[in-house]
Design a protein around this nucleic acid. Structure first.
Lengths: 261, 261
DNA sequence: AGTCTATCTCCCACTCTATGAGAGATATGG
DNA sequence: CCATATCTCTCATAGAGTGGGAGATAGACT
């Protein structure tokens, strides 16, 4: 294997070598190290520079260019998982007739990266929005994944603002709820953020088992009665597993959950 | 122009198109949009996937891969400027017989990215170290570039720890010193961090004129007498200009400080 | 579970592109 | 200002990439 498009391969290898070298060695040396003739290396480097993948400081010395910085932004785990999860959550939301969210934990807040499902505007949330963590299913699942120390610091901010009669505002109540979420592997939002909104959430784990995001399903309940969420939870867990599975390649392929040195 | 290595060019264009699309459109569509035949697109995509630049979720849907994330790290402005500045500061330090530093402002602290010059171990600093900002030339130059609001918040942490008899520990004194640095365009450290160390520092500005880092020269003074720093300052300013000049390509090439459309 | 659509793989002859060595132009640094 | 090493340019040859089409297959929808 590894046969077709040798030019592309060589170009990418040169790019990686130059960038990871950090501009210490000149092009000639780096090129020789990966078995490229000088002329070919120069042609490739010029192309890479013209496309913005490299910049040149002195003669022979190249550094990572703005295009790599831009693509690097799109290659962050949050951006990638959003792209991967979008169709999965959209299908799930459509099938169950509810709203699906994907969010990450940032600075004690939940940042919503994705909002999929029919009637996207019936709910106050939107993509790229930040919301408090204590009153949503996503927030509680993400809080449950925090270090004990960080969680304690967060709870010290309480008592929290009461949004509905069901909102958990006392740190002790919230701590108990979060502990339960940690044990169960999922969290509920029983009308705690809005009076007519019921919500279930599960975490997403990376290759090392670390929680890096969470997904949730929100059910509008005009009659303020909890829906039957047991089947929906199974579907949500299956979707989460699918997302994790498809993120596997992203987490390096090497370091999985194995314990070998 | 735009002729050689068409495979590389096409591969890079496909990579950028797929990544920036965020995995919304399938490979076939994206390939057609940039004028690539299906077979060629598949070959290129397989190569990019094999090298870690792309990952595939479903059939036909590609996302940014781990290699892009890794190279994106190396493409951050701080990493690039360190690579570009290294030889320049090394030469300057060697010629003047002093130590040169490059640092950025992070969370009210100065992070040292570079330490060049003879006798690297005579000083306590090292690369990737974090130091307080109030007592160094770098720190004062970087503080001078902060928003008034952020600066006020920082000064509220004072009075600061007195490291030498010359250390400015009172917020008011420090505020005056930082205002002077802002006006002059450089800052001094008159034995404020160590009793036998004199230091000059100037900021580095990006394409929009924003300060994103700073460079400094440190002179060991066993006799505790200020050296003649006027000529050194000129050299340092020239070096800073050179670094800024060589970073120009990085800042997009388009938006410079010019006013013409 | 079954069906269907669209992606992917494979194939092969043609075309044209990349290759690499050498000599000369030109920066960069001392 | 000179020296060193990078870059550009040229060219003949090899051989690699191209793309159209047909068949395999995975993934989505019912």
């Amino acid at each position: 294997m590894e046969s077709p498009d040798r030019v592309l391969d060589r170009g990418l290898r040169l790019l990686a070598a130059l960038v990871q070298d950090g501009g210490r060695r000149p092009l000639t040396e780096v090129a020789a190290a990966i078995g490229l003739s000088r002329a070919s290396a120069h042609r490739a480097a010029s192309m890479l520079q013209g496309s913005g993948y490299l910049i040149r400081s002195r003669r022979g010395y190249y550094h990572a260019g703005p295009m790599l910085a831009a693509l690097g932004q799109a290659a962050r785990a949050e951006a990638v998982v959003a792209g991967i999860a979008r169709p999965i959550l959209a299908g799930l939301a459509r099938r169950l007739g509810c709203l699906a969210h994907l969010g990450v934990f940032e600075q004690d807040m939940v940042t919503y990266l994705l909002k999929e499902g029919a009637g996207k505007d019936v709910l106050f949330t939107r993509a790229d929005m930040q919301l408090e963590a204590y009153c949503s299913g996503l927030g509680k699942v993400l809080l449950a994944a925090q270090e004990e120390e960080a969680l304690a610091a967060y709870l010290d901010n309480g008592p929290f603002v009461r949004l509905t009669p069901h909102t958990l505002v006392e740190p002790d109540d919230l701590r108990r709820e979060i502990a339960r979420a940690r044990d169960q592997g999922f969290a509920l939002d029983r009308f705690e953020a809005a009076e007519d909104l019921f919500c279930i959430a599960v975490p997403l784990r990376d290759g090392a088992g670390q929680v890096f995001a969470a997904v949730s399903l929100s059910f509008p309940c005009p009659d303020k009665t909890p829906p039957d969420w047991s089947r929906a939870l199974e579907s949500l867990k299956r979707a989460a597993g699918q997302i994790e599975e498809r993120m596997r390649d992203y987490w390096g392929g090497e370091r999985s959950s194995g314990a070998a040195p």
